[in-house]
């Protein structure tokens, strides 16, 4: 079963064209992983597709690190009745 963290890392790696094994929870999307603003938009879109959820744009874009994204997505999955782990 893939954990939320694994799925978040896989999407991040795909959008930012990185190796998933090099992505750490403490990594900042912008400062450490080099996400530009347009890639942030794509990341949010792809997280929504991956997890089948709707995220508030402002809240989603205020998430700075991979670990915080995992927490945020887990919380949204819970609120929207979606199974977070696959």
């Amino acid at each position: 079963m893939a954990t939320v963290e694994e799925r978040v890392k896989a999407i991040t790696a795909r959008v930012l064209k990185l190796n998933p094994d090099e992505i750490k929870p403490e990594h900042s999307f912008t400062a450490d992983l080099g996400a530009e603003s347009v890639q942030s938009i794509e990341l949010v879109a792809m997280f929504e597709e991956e997890f089948g959820i709707e995220m508030d744009e402002d809240a989603a874009l205020s998430v700075e690190t991979v670990g915080k994204a995992v927490e945020f997505i887990t919380e949204v999955c819970g609120e929207q009745g979606v199974e977070a782990e696959q």
Binding site: I41, E42, V44, A45, E57, D58
Partner: peptide, 16 residues
């Protein structure tokens, strides 16, 4: 619409 990288997206939303 936020038209980014050749597609329509939600972007940063209407607030921005």
């Amino acid at each position: 619409a936020w038209f980014v990288e050749g597609v329509v997206t939600k972007g940063f939303g209407k607030g921005k």
